[in-house]
């Protein structure tokens, strides 16, 4: 069967993007950003506290890290839950020693099940980012908008109530969105979204409830991706963090402030044999002059103040 003729029609072939959520913009041609104390690199560490329910539906797809075996999959369930019981505390210890901040992206289910983790986050003045209801409540094209609205509300409200924090950041489980997600999170007072992987700095993104920002939560500097999906070893993981930082740090000399974003899954990086390589990489970064460890909300605030 031949293709319909409109397969060769391109109604959105125009200057800029093929959608209206954000403007086309070249990173290296923007006004340079300045950080507080003239820092060169804002260090944004984002541990993810995730809960993968045992009765997972896996629909319409499985978020990365999902259960793999037939019910009851104790193997994967408990392995993921290890991050919330053990792994996160190894990460916190490193951050404490290096006096680094974090923005913890948390499923609402984690806050409900393990409020102790919320206390640990609050005690350190870390930020909480809303990471959806749990890892089986996805946001995706075709999701009933009413259902999605309820999911967003449940996630944001639960985390605000339990933490007492304003919660201004959002990370969708599996970084998946529907056409409505941005509008729905903005309606709940979310000011920045961490799902988009197209930039190294914040940029404005349009919603039905005004402009919010996309923050450059890292896709590639991600322990799960590098260690479990690419099967690189721990030393290669640490090397990539160091190489990422060195490039961004060098760029900041001529192009203004940069953001070094590090995504951490405590159920991946929090294992005994993996934490020292992480510590080594973070130490390399923290030892540089002009590194500003901050939360996503603080970085976004500084970005706006610097005229970004």
């Amino acid at each position: 069967m031949p293709l319909p003729d409109d397969y060769l029609k391109y109604p959105l072939r125009r200057h800029g993007m093929d959608q209206d959520r954000y403007d086309w913009s070249i990173l290296f041609r923007r006004k340079p950003v300045t950080w507080p104390q003239d820092a060169r690199v804002a260090l944004w560490i984002v541990p993810l506290l995730q809960w993968f329910p045992l009765n997972q539906t896996g629909k319409p797809f499985k978020a990365p890290g999902s259960l793999e075996r037939p019910y009851p999959d104790y193997r994967y369930y408990s392995h993921r839950d290890y991050g919330n019981r053990v792994g996160i505390f190894r990460i916190l210890k490193i951050l404490d020693r290096l006096e680094l901040k974090a923005s913890v992206a948390m499923n609402a289910a984690v806050a409900r099940r393990y409020p102790f983790l919320v206390e640990e986050v609050n005690r350190r003045d870390y930020e909480i980012i809303a990471h959806g209801v749990d890892m089986d409540h996805l946001h995706y094209g075709g999701l009933d908008p009413k259902k999605e609205k309820a999911q967003v509300e449940e996630a944001v409200t639960t985390l605000r109530e339990i933490s007492g924090q304003p919660v201004s950041g959002w990370l969708s489980p599996g970084r998946s969105e529907s056409d409505n997600t941005l509008d729905l999170i903005a309606a709940e007072g979310i000011e920045y979204v961490c799902d988009w992987a197209n930039d190294d700095l914040p940029y404005p993104i349009r919603t039905a409830h005004g402009e919010i920002h996309a923050m450059p939560h890292s896709l590639e500097i991600d322990d799960r991706l590098i260690l479990l999906q690419y099967h690189h070893n721990e030393d290669a993981y640490a090397q990539q963090l160091i190489d990422q930082f060195d490039t961004l740090y060098a760029e900041s000399e001529n192009h203004g402030g940069r953001i070094m974003a590090i995504t951490l899954h405590p159920w991946v990086i929090g294992h005994p044999y993996r934490v020292k390589p992480l510590e080594r990489a973070l130490t390399h970064i923290a030892e540089h002059k002009g590194v500003w460890s901050a939360t996503g909300a603080e970085i976004l605030d500084a970005f706006k103040k610097s005229g970004g």
Binding site: W24, S178, T247
Partner: peptide
């Protein structure tokens, strides 16, 4: 891929044009 809008690969590719190509 995921149901449209599959924003993660879309935005990853867009990274190439906004940032990567210049490096």
């Amino acid at each position: 891929g995921r149901p449209a809008p599959d924003i993660l690969p879309y935005s990853h590719k867009d990274y190439g044009n906004r940032a990567g190509v210049w490096r």
